[in-house]
């Protein structure tokens, strides 16, 4: 049992956990990729959002308490606070028809 725990500990260490570094998310043609972002619950994390479209987009989420404009063809960091386990939808405010995503804290 102990060994399994240790092993899983190593595996966790090998796969960078959400809190360890920015999570890369791309916005292209007004769509987020990945559109579902998994983060560790109860720990802050950072989404590095690269906007590959020519125009600006606002990463907007009431659930995540974030509104951040990322200019066209640039990258911006979106800070995600420590979240209770759950699903937190977000959207690109200027293109809500296509730019939809969700942060899953688990």
């Amino acid at each position: 049992m102990k060994r399994i725990l240790l092993l899983s500990g190593f595996m966790l260490a090998a796969v960078p956990a959400a809190a360890d570094g920015p999570i890369a998310v791309t916005l292209q043609n007004h769509k987020f990729a990945p559109a579902e972002i998994h983060v560790k619950a109860n720990a802050p994390s950072i989404i590095a959002l690269t906007n590959k479209d020519a125009t600006a987009e606002e990463f907007d989420s009431t659930a995540l308490k974030v509104e951040k404009v990322v200019a066209g063809n640039s990258t911006g960091n979106v800070r995600i606070r420590a979240l209770a386990p759950g699903r937190y939808p977000f959207m690109g405010e200027y293109h809500p028809g296509t730019a939809q995503g969700v942060v899953v804290a688990e």
């Binding site: 020519a54 125009t55 404009v69 200027y94 293109h95």
Partner: peptide, 14 residues
């Protein structure tokens, strides 16, 4: 206003 400008500019640019 800055949000409106960015939004409308995005439309115009498209």
């Amino acid at each position: 206003g800055s949000e409106v400008v960015l939004f409308l500019y995005g439309i115009a640019a498209q």
